[in-house]
Amino acid sequence: MLELRLVQGNLLKKVLEAVKDLVTDANFDCSSTGFSLQAMDSSHVALVALLLRSEGFEHYRCDRNVSMGMNLNNMAKMLKCAGNDDIVTIKADDGSDTVTFMFESPNQDKIADFEMKLMDIDSEHLGIPEAEYHAIVRMPSSEFARICKDLSSIGDTVVISVTKEGVKFSTRGDIGNANVVCRQNTTVDKPEESTTIEMHEPVSLTFALRYMNSFTKATPLSSTVTISLSSELPVVVEYKIAEMGYIRFYLAPKIED
């Protein structure tokens, strides 16, 4: 028996909007730790890792570890039917081939059940080792989204370079080239508007902008984004989900032929 009650139901709606374009089908794993997902895109270039910790749920019952295969587009369709202020409960019986999403309006005057068919998914699970990153950039998530969107109108790839001058996002295309430099800026009043750069070594890596733009669909989940870079390691683009966990995107760099 599984029963997970999430008062901030719209978090789940935002999570689905953040991942459904990158991954079609995925196994959601439920354990005493929390509700999690790890899935790669079809070309095995990008990976999404989600964790919603059990403590973040108002009620969390998971009698045994369960893996539930879901089509993310179908799940997003069902969650779109929840109101933004609704409480969402995920329910599944042991051995069942369906999962139920229950939506309760805040004043309990409307309760809806949406039952979705589960699917068998042969998912590949990757071990992601703890790594020391050469540079960690923390910046407003909206700023990062703006830069990725702007640069993708010029070119297909972005070079992210971190030096002691700051973090530089560069692209080039048929019509020309573009560079955006963000400097460390901690003097602003609000911490969510600051940019911090923790650099152990200068690093410069090239990535496909198509994926970066897809990751920025998670922007509504967090006011800040953390970009961790190491030469010859996939970049980690992390959006913290307040009091619950995180959504992390890993993207393999482009490498010299």
Binding site: M40, S43, H44, V45, A46, L47, E124, H125, L126, G127, I128, P129, T157, T206, A208, E232, L233, P234, Y250, A252, P253, K254, I255, E256, D257
Partner: peptide, 14 residues
Amino acid sequence: LMQQGALGNFFVHT
């Protein structure tokens, strides 16, 4: 020319 790397080059299957 740059080639797209794959995650399998960096992470191992578990």
